[in-house]
Amino acid sequence: MTLYNFFAPCPRGLEPALVTELEALGASSVLRSDGGVQFQGGWSDCYRANLESRIASRILWQVASEPYVTEADVYAATRRLLWSQWFNPTLTIRVNVAAIKCPLRSLDFVTLRIKDAVCDAFRETTGRRPDVNTVQPDMRIHGFLDARRFSLYLDTSGDALFKRGIRKNTVAAPIRENLAAGILHLTGWKPGVPLLDPMCGSGTFLLEAVQVALNIAPGSGRHFAFEKLKNFDAQQWKQLKEEALARQRPLLRQPIFGSDLYGDILAAARANLAEAGFSDAVSLKQANVLEIAAPAPSGFLITNPPYGVRIGEQQQLAEFYPRLGDALKKKFSGWSAYILTADPLLPKLIRLTASRRIPLFNGALECRLLEYKMVAGGMRRVKSPSLSPSSTSALEGDGA
């Protein structure tokens, strides 16, 4: 079997979790990188990673990696590639370029030169060039430049992998699906253990937890760009999907609970669960997080509370955070609480001692995942390894 080089970008801070996931999926030579994970595999491994990875943002096939000095070098490296052997010129393209410490003056000009090289290569071999579509292209081409090296990738995913195709209704500042899945992984939560999101918003944590509990492949309800490649093996893809479907567990009620203070927000979560077919698996109710009772003697509380932007909101939250800490101490003894926040005030005002503070990014927004072990009689400090933030991922993409 021929092995190809792939790169799977992910939300910053989740690289170690993605390494573990890709190794479990059968990828080889898995190596953590800044903002993602490099790995090798055949096309079946690429298909499987797209179908089953809960944490990756995309699966990118590396088609070139060469030293460069000028834009002409980038053009020449791109022009030499066998584009017409990979996909038809009737498909539309979009080129994205990112860089770290790149000496070239204009990334826009580099982007233009890559596009020109692709089109020129097609025109020479087929007599036709592909059109550009920046909104919904058939094929996405990603270029990355550091100080000395130029790498080029063909996106096998298409739409970003966090777009599962099941969350139709969103609320303000939603958490991305693959970040939610990565947080579930970081907490150590397992199916069958009670899970509560008391400020559930549109229900992203709940949707991801149900898919884990029922062993549903996150990509089973959508299409991918690799299906448009000339070497696409439809029979192999069909077999992988059938195997994933056979591993699914029956749709039964899970100890997964969600609540929110606002009825319209809860309605969005309820609609998302219904459209995904998960209404019977999750318990939802309208409730105030400061008043809600624990649904079980122990479990995992995982939530992404609101954070303030305007002065008035900050004042309200300064009053809310200490009350939240009191509620957790009084009503959730025996639970592990995990709070994702972009608000630097929360860890200072909640009056609880975090046993872990894990740096994570929700898109470009820097956050912290705070772990609190709730024990009777107060908080104790629990030593636990923390994850260090990684540098910016140049290939995370914009979710388009």
Rank of each mutant, 00 (worst) to 15 (best):
183 I>C: 03
398 D>L: 11
399 G>Q: 01
348 K>T: 10
30 V>Q: 02
351 R>C: 09
139 M>I: 15
125 T>H: 09
281 A>R: 14
146 D>P: 05
284 L>N: 11
117 A>W: 03
41 G>D: 05
15 E>S: 03
288 N>V: 07
53 S>G: 08
28 S>V: 15
246 A>N: 02
51 L>K: 09
97 V>K: 04
354 A>H: 03
32 R>F: 02
142 H>S: 10
249 R>K: 15
243 E>L: 07
126 T>D: 01
120 D>I: 02
51 L>Q: 11
265 I>V: 15
222 R>E: 02
52 E>C: 15
305 P>Y: 00
236 Q>W: 08
234 A>P: 00
152 L>M: 05
374 M>H: 04
344 P>S: 03
241 K>V: 09
293 A>W: 06
146 D>I: 06
393 S>D: 03
259 S>L: 11
285 K>V: 08
297 P>L: 07
259 S>Q: 10
334 G>F: 04
119 C>A: 13
192 G>F: 09
342 A>C: 05
76 A>Y: 13
338 Y>R: 04
103 P>Y: 12
293 A>N: 12
81 L>H: 06
149 R>D: 07
120 D>G: 03
356 R>V: 01
235 Q>I: 09
77 A>F: 13
336 S>L: 11
86 W>R: 15
281 A>H: 11
357 R>S: 10
366 E>N: 05
358 I>V: 15
324 L>Y: 12
252 L>I: 15
289 V>E: 00
302 I>G: 05
61 W>K: 02
325 G>I: 11
216 I>M: 05
55 I>E: 07
238 K>M: 10
374 M>Y: 05
82 L>E: 15
386 S>L: 00
373 K>T: 08
335 W>S: 05
321 Y>C: 06
51 L>G: 12
14 L>R: 02
237 W>C: 01
231 N>R: 04
278 F>E: 12
285 K>H: 13
20 T>E: 10
117 A>K: 02
174 P>C: 01
24 A>E: 13
381 R>N: 06
179 L>D: 10
52 E>W: 15
291 E>N: 12
347 P>W: 12
100 I>Y: 08
22 L>G: 06
334 G>S: 05
355 S>G: 09
13 G>A: 08
302 I>V: 15
113 R>N: 01
134 T>H: 04
289 V>W: 06
158 G>P: 02
192 G>K: 14
155 D>S: 08
287 A>L: 10
152 L>S: 00
251 L>Y: 04
280 D>T: 13
259 S>K: 13
275 E>G: 14
2 T>E: 12
392 T>L: 13
162 F>K: 02
60 L>H: 10
103 P>L: 10
249 R>S: 09
200 C>N: 08
102 C>L: 08
75 Y>H: 14
17 A>E: 01
100 I>G: 00
286 Q>H: 11
247 R>Y: 06
105 R>W: 08
8 A>C: 11
76 A>Q: 15
14 L>P: 03
161 L>E: 00
